[in-house]
């Protein structure tokens, strides 16, 4: 199913110059992500999780090798083209939500659609649909400071999926949430993955996140130490 491949890295190397020495963040990483995957990059700090997420999200470029995302070689994209790739195909979810505080929930979710020049009537429909998915349609007029941490992260999820991207990248999405909210957010993302077929890639240390994953990629010193497909999901709390 070649057509199902959304992301492919080939001998991916990322080196950061650190004074007189070089820091090898990624060393010959070869990975392929297909449509609809629900995967986590796990590993200790400095293992290369965020670097790999950066390159897949076209926020960074590899030093050597290549990363092909949605058929485009990330290292060859101009700033404008990589912004276009992010806007059309990639949604981001951050650890600290990063909602724009002066805008309402509705407007925060609407923002990515404004960048794509989606017509107003279609925008409204898609924003409300995204808020329905995260069960926050009734809070669309609220401001971020009126929401709990879990609700804020759900708004961030709605913002990431509203443009129906093929890939959603989430960096430690539950790090600032308690256990109950972490499960709520993960269940919503799992549901979206199944219902909409979006590929979710997480970077995490959190066991609560890992237990939802169908694929777990362990990184160690920039290398893929283990790439495991989970057949049956563990029983959750």
């Amino acid at each position: 199913m070649e057509n199902d491949i959304l992301i492919q890295t080939k001998d991916l190397v990322k080196i950061y110059p650190m004074g007189s020495q070089d820091l090898v963040a990624l060393e010959k990483v070869n990975l392929t992500f297909k449509k609809g995957e629900f995967a986590a990059l796990v590993g200790p700090s400095g293992s290369g999780k965020t670097t790999l997420l950066n390159i897949i999200g076209s926020l960074d470029t590899p030093t050597r090798g290549s990363a092909i995302v949605m058929g485009l070689e990330v290292e060859k994209l101009s700033h404008k083209k990589s912004a276009e790739l992010r806007n059309k195909h990639i949604g981001f979810i951050f650890q600290t939500f990063n909602l724009l505080p002066v805008y309402t929930v509705y407007e925060n979710v609407e923002f990515p659609l404004l960048l794509s020049d989606v017509p107003a009537s279609e925008r409204k429909q898609r924003v409300m649909q995204a808020l329905e998915w995260v069960k926050l349609a009734d809070r669309h007029r609220s401001k971020p400071n009126q929401l709990s941490g879990g609700q804020s992260q759900r708004v961030a999820v709605a913002r990431a999926i509203v443009k129906m991207p093929s890939i959603v990248l989430a960096d430690e999405p539950t790090a600032n949430l308690d256990a109950e909210n972490s499960h709520n957010v993960m269940q919503i993302m799992e549901g979206l993955n199944k219902e909409l077929g979006m590929t979710f890639i997480f970077s995490t240390h959190d066991e609560k996140v890992v237990q939802y994953m169908r694929r777990i990629i362990s990184l160690d010193d920039g290398r893929v130490a283990k790439d495991e497909f989970v057949k049956s999901v563990k029983k959750r709390v």
Binding site: K80, A83, R86, F94
Partner: peptide, 16 residues
């Protein structure tokens, strides 16, 4: 700074 970062991540072009 934070708002600009989010906007860049959302795919807003730097020129825009």
């Amino acid at each position: 700074y934070g708002e600009i970062g989010v906007r860049l991540a959302m795919g807003e072009a730097k020129g825009h």
